[in-house]
Design a protein around this nucleic acid. Structure first.
Length: 414
RNA sequence: GCGGGCGUAGCUCAGUCGGUAGAGCGCUAGGUUGUGGUCCUGGAUGUCGCCGGUUCGAGUCCGGUCGCUCGCCCCA
């Protein structure tokens, strides 16, 4: 056991894990592009206050999960624990409010100082989208539709359930908050310690407490829906109508909440039971007050983020790996010709393996290990005749092919 | 931060009562100086996580420690 090891909660990504990861990333990127989302990449660290302001001083992420450090210049910096704050900051920094709405897609590593377990790492990856500057409910529906599309394309949609709720506009939300505080205050003695803390800082969070005693109280708590004003009800109706029209199934969950004040209207999560203790695979919602709370313009936002590792663990079918063509030179004279042929074929779009050394048998073993589809023999006889000998490594069948038609033969998949 | 499980070869693991460290797979060389897979023969690879204790003797027993893993909290 070597002393060289990765930091706790981080992992090397290689082999099939890497392919699964890439498949998730590329599928999401491709679909997001189809919906008109442009890719953005923001720095993996920001000034700490960027996250403090957007995530709030009471959230778990800010209070105990941030990777924060002081750099040599004395700046307080933090590795991003999520990317909505960074994207919102970039939106303001780059003056993107000139042409709204802005639809963005991102992918990259995130960092949280947590105890690792299945589906939860200190460095993990997220894919995500944000729509900035679209106050319309249809934007919420599109965002969810894209999320469902990505899950469907990955073949995992039927392993998830879409849970959906509305927090309403600020007026509805404030009214609900007051009703909740009144209700839980009258039962304060029965609340868990955590929830007593939440009562004044973040009362909506009590709704998704796992504590059994809390859950009994929550069962009789007032429901969000009862506090929604007409405008909020209309908004939510547009979202659900949009999903219904596309045949996207969902379950209304009145206890699905976001604690921070700038969250409004739609909140949703695609959850699964296939990942141990980690249920959420893709989650998001509307955050109309976020950019303003950062000191930017009053621009609404809606989006989601998904855990790449979690999705990678869920997918079953992977696209087949590329099977290269292996060139096997035989004899000293063929080495140079093989070297040139390899480059010629690569320029023509073929995946070509040419070992740096070894006898033909050794190179064939290597070709086999690389799962090459064809071996391409080049020896004195072939050089003299202007041909190469192709061997199908699945069937063992061999035939000679003239150099002039070799590319056609390879492109036919032969 | 708290709890459970587990640390032996690159991987998966066995190792009896405390008595000189093993298997399969993989890797490598050869059988095969123009051809992989299957087969045969040989070879390399270990701080038994680490430190200490008990013992004539510890992979094995005891204590500590580090790491991995699963779960709690919370989240992707």
């Amino acid at each position: 056991m070597s002393e060289l090891r990765p930091v706790r909660g981080t992992h090397d990504l290689l082999g099939e894990d890497m392919r699964r990861h890439s498949h998730v990333h590329e599928t999401a990127r491709r679909l997001a592009s189809r919906y008109g989302y442009r890719e953005i990449e923001t720095p993996i660290f920001e000034f700490t206050e960027v996250f403090q302001r957007t995530l709030g001083d009471t959230s778990d992420v800010v209070t105990k999960e941030m990777y924060t450090f002081t750099d040599r210049g004395g700046e307080q910096l933090t590795l991003r624990p999520e990317n909505t704050a960074g994207v919102a900051r970039a939106f303001v920094t780059n003056g993107l409010q000139q042409s709204l709405p802005v639809k963005l897609f991102y992918h990259g590593p995130m960092f949280r100082y947590e105890r690792p377990q299945k589906g939860r790492m200190r460095q993990f990856h997220q894919i995500g989208i944000e729509v900035l500057g679209a106050p319309e409910a249809l934007a919420d529906a599109e965002v969810i539709a894209l999320g469902a599309h990505v899950l469907d394309e990955l073949g995992v949609l039927d392993k998830t359930v879409l849970q959906l709720n509305s927090l309403g506009d600020p007026e509805s939300r404030a009214a609900y908050r007051d009703r909740l505080v009144a209700y839980f205050s009258s039962h304060e003695a029965k609340l868990s310690e955590d929830s007593r803390n939440r009562l004044h800082k973040n009362p909506l969070r009590i709704l998704d407490s796992k504590d059994p005693g809390d859950r009994e109280l929550v069962a009789d708590a007032p429901l969000m829906g009862e506090s929604l004003n007409q405008a909020s009800r209309d908004f939510f109706k547009t979202v659900t109508d949009g999903l219904d029209a596309l045949g996207i199934a969902y379950v209304l969950d009145p206890r699905l909440v976001r604690g921070l004040d700038y969250y409004t209207h739609t909140a949703f999560e695609f959850v699964t039971t296939h990942l141990g203790a980690q249920g959420t695979v893709l989650g998001g919602g509307r955050y109309d007050g976020l950019i303003r709370s950062m000191g930017g313009p009053d621009v609404p936002g809606v989006g989601w983020a998904a855990g790449v590792e979690r999705l990678a663990a869920l997918i079953e079918a992977l696209p087949p790996a590329i099977r290269p063509v292996a060139i096997v030179p035989i004899g000293a004279a063929a080495e140079r010709a093989a070297w040139q042929l390899a480059q010629e074929l690569r320029r023509a779009g073929q995946h070509v393996e040419l070992a740096f050394r070894g006898k033909p048998a050794q190179r064939m073993k290597r070709a086999d290990r690389l799962d090459a589809r064809l071996a391409l023999f080049l020896g004195d006889d072939e050089l003299a005749a202007g041909v190469v000998k192709l061997r199908d490594l699945s069937t063992g069948a061999e035939h000679a092919v003239a150099r002039e038609v070799l590319l056609d033969e390879l492109n036919r998949g032969a």
